[in-house]
Design a protein around this nucleic acid. Sequence first.
DNA 1: TTATTATTGAAAACCATTTTCAATAAGTAT
DNA 2: ATACTTATTGAAAATGGTTTTCAATAATAA
Lengths: 139, 139
Amino acid sequence: MSVSAWLEQLHDHGYRLTGARRAVVETVEKSTRALTPIEVYDMARKKYRAIGLVTVYRTLEKLEELHLIQRVHQPMGCQAFIAAGVGHQHLLLCQNCGQAAFFDGDDLDALTKAIEKKTGYQINEHWLQLFGLCADCRA
Amino acid sequence: MSVSAWLEQLHDHGYRLTGARRAVVETVEKSTRALTPIEVYDMARKKYRAIGLVTVYRTLEKLEELHLIQRVHQPMGCQAFIAAGVGHQHLLLCQNCGQAAFFDGDDLDALTKAIEKKTGYQINEHWLQLFGLCADCRA
DNA sequence: TTATTATTGAAAACCATTTTCAATAAGTAT
DNA sequence: ATACTTATTGAAAATGGTTTTCAATAATAA
Ligand SMILES: [Mn+2]
Ligand SMILES: [Mn+2]
Ligand SMILES: [Zn+2]
Ligand SMILES: [Zn+2]
């Protein structure tokens, strides 16, 4: 995805393209780590001075509705957002700098089946997230 | 674990045993689903009328410090707590009634290794959580 | 250009959580 | 038992992140 693709998505869903929205989109789409509303606000403000924190919240809300961003749960808080992964992917987060990477290829079918049998639950989805140190931070 | 074991833990760490704390401990230890502070408050109040919501927050804080309870992250919110699992376990949650079950036996070593190689990250921990319908709710 | 109305930012409201504080009661020493 | 020390308590106030309100503005269509 790209900034222009995000703006196109917004436009295609009847949302107007404004300076404030462009600033938020550019900030979040380019970030390699999850950002909180305030962080987005501080960064977007450098691109569009007059932006209000309220507009950041409202724009994040719309981007989440369009599945362009997703909420990131972390030990320190669950209010951060990052550009959404494509297809079936999970997040790998650096515990030092927050650098995020998506990965796929997890196969939980066997585990899921075994647990369904043992517990009687019908399993519909799973959350998986890895934590560690990115290449830069482990050096 | 049991209610008395929790109370003993509190006592062993120098905390006094009070009616309010007993009510919170009994509520949370016996629950098979994650409870929010307000839910704990409403339930504990039936055992100890005079309890204040503030004391619920303070007691949950201590129980978490002692690793007797753990925070549960869910799509609807991340403010709920449940009796902590023992050893390496993960949660399986019913999307309908909230019924929680712990499971173990997940083996992510191969996946972890592969991702470390591919991404350059050093992976230290993982979060895994399953969602579905419990035996009662799927019927 | 003009008209329509979605969008905006400031201010106020909201609400979950935390802090303050004087009264109370658990644990200890007498 | 009784007195003493001080951790604990609940009420009230404060806090801080998020949401709502509202009149002004600006994006889009006519
Ligand atoms: Mn998966
Ligand atoms: Mn595991
Ligand atoms: Zn890093
Ligand atoms: Zn259920």
